[in-house]
Nucleic acid binder design. Structure first.
Lengths: 350, 350
DNA sequence: TTGAAAGCGGTACCAA
DNA sequence: TTGGTACCGCTTTCAA
């Protein structure tokens, strides 16, 4: 119940403080502090004496006290859609895994560490954490978390939905360009009709994809064919593909809902179609398994790592300048063309 | 360069402190603090006056100062093998993704947040963070990170390699039981020889698997057939499986190296074998795609979520009692038997 | 019911 | 070169 070592416990050795070291070394707090931090000017002998005493006592500076003095904790809060939810449907996706990894790496490189936040459950649960900034990946519409951070005037990095608000910084994927690149590519490979599979619950990105898809179809006089999944995960996507393949169907498929590419390939094949002969396939996915299936599956990478790096860059600039001027950037996607979307596979040389 | 608002910047509004609110409300720090925290005894009018002033000024308590007073930050450092490395080969595995998720969720449930740490690069980089405890998932042999935490007397949760050291807590997967369960299952299904695919670089877990495998083979008079991958990721595993399938080969396969199950299935099929007729297959994997392939792939789950929950439990117990008494626990695995490892699939009823 | 003052554990400014 | 002391911002004890 109490923090004081009054209870009848194993009495976790009351932590050694700077004063203890100073007393042991017969020096003052100031001198010992300077000695250990390598600052100040003093004889090598004194410095060594202080260090020796610290070592002997097993002294560890109290990080919180330092932070209080420093005025910042170099800590960035990080929240993702369903993150830290037992279901974890989102975080099992390679996109978010890579985004999280890359964000942590980029932040660390700048001397900041990421704190994993509960995304929805309890609001303001981060209030006790000394956050210098926050990141909300894949925010909901009118995400309360975003409102919280903005209200707290904590520099925030998230998607374009915050564009223009002071203290916010956005990075988004160029959905429009991505969709056009994929559809153009498939058309060049001879596709007459490209069907698209989207998740049932649309994020900003998915809405943009749907819009551009319809637009592109109108521009090219093609009939849009849009399938929607019943939920997240491989199962619903496979089911949607099977539904799409049931009947004459399209001659190209662009699966945007996240799924394991080899599984999509299998689903198409079960309909009796050959890929790429009867159907061209592109998946929006960061899953490395795409390049190891036969045929290898063409993928559209949303480049989570690039999003992370750019976002951290914007955040760092804001943190260093202290400016609340909003900034933002669009990150281009990358289309990796593999065998699954190339109609005329030339005979391999030799 | 400087923290003081001296530079010619947009002068990020000097943060509102408790004293500012007190002055605004015409009260003392003490009273305002009590009012905002809902502690102390005071007239509703005064409390409201304090709150109103805080709201008007947009007051946000300084988390660091609170922590200093509280004596703990409720922060747990978290490091994984190659985590926060641009390569990210490890973290792209569902095992670590789920382990991380579940750990964060469990910690959060106890009021602690996870801080993502750089695993190898710079030692002691966490020294500036007010960590109450640390977690090292998948430590290296004689991991320097572990030595650091132990030396710093920070309660640590990792694998069994630390067994018995004060202040450490371990949770491990029951590798021995897992291997026996899988091999027995395959044997019951008629397998005469089960080959095993392991990663090239063996972790504690993989070494235990190899040992038990050899032992089991000796006990059952079977010839061990062990293949090793050239590196992490799907590619090398697929290559290893292809090598194994080249020739007469075994009649069952237990893939322990992490790979996308449908890809393994495909690799086996390319050798002309049918699964499960010609070859029974079990993969050690947390990948959900296993249940959506045709046939669905049997998996051995190492239960990262259970490991996380148990580990956090041990850590919390230690943190609450202040005891440095080492603790530990073994978590059982789960074998999900699906079509890929059941030889005689009975005709479905009706 | 309210407030003054003493810390929490360091760091940094000066004076000696 | 070294040490005294104020201070980071908040909570808490205790006296008024």
């Amino acid at each position: 119940m109490s923090d004081s070592p009054r209870s009848g416990e194993p009495a976790a050795t009351p932590r050694i403080r700077l004063v203890d070291v100073a007393r042991e070394a017969g020096l003052s707090k100031t001198t010992v502090s300077a000695a250990l931090n390598g600052t100040g000017r003093m004889s090598g002998a004194v410095r060594e004496r202080a260090r020796e005493a610290a070592r002997r006592l097993g002294y560890r500076p109290n990080a919180t006290a330092r932070l209080l003095r420093a005025g910042h904790a170099r800590l960035i809060g990080y929240a993702v859609g369903e993150f830290a939810d037992d279901t974890g449907s989102y975080m099992s996706s390679p996109y978010f895994t890579q985004l999280t990894n890359a964000t942590a790496a980029a932040a660390l490189q700048h001397g900041y560490a990421l704190v994993l936040l509960p995304s929805r459950r309890a609001p303001q649960e981060w209030a006790d954490l000394p956050l210098d900034a926050a990141i909300v990946a894949d925010p909901l519409d009118d995400d309360p978390l975003i409102e919280d951070f903005v209200a707290a005037r904590i520099p925030l990095f998230t998607d374009r939905s915050v564009e223009g608000r002071p203290g916010t910084h956005w990075v988004d994927v160029n959905a429009d360009g991505a969709v056009r690149e994929v559809l153009d590519h498939l058309r060049e490979q001879g596709a007459r009709q490209t069907a698209v599979v989207l998740p049932g619950t649309l994020t900003r990105f998915h809405r943009a994809v749907a819009d551009t898809y319809r637009l592109w179809c109108a521009e090219h006089g093609a009939a849009p064919l849009l399938a929607t999944t019943d939920g997240p995960g491989d199962g619903p996507v496979v089911a949607a593909v099977e539904r799409l393949m049931d009947g004459p169907g399209p001659d190209a498929l662009f699966v945007v809902a996240e799924a394991t590419p080899p599984l999509v390939l299998d689903a198409v094949r079960r309909s009796g179609r050959d890929v790429p002969r009867d159907l061209l396939l592109v998946c929006a996915s960061e899953d490395a398994s795409a390049e190891h299936s036969r045929p290898a599956v063409s993928t559209l990478s949303l480049r989570p790592a690039a999003v992370a790096v750019k976002g951290i860059e914007l955040l760092m600039a804001a943190l260093e300048s202290g400016s609340r001027e909003p900034t933002g950037a669009l990150v281009p996607t990358v289309l990796e063309i593999r065998a699954s979307s190339v109609r005329a596979a030339p005979a391999p040389p030799a």
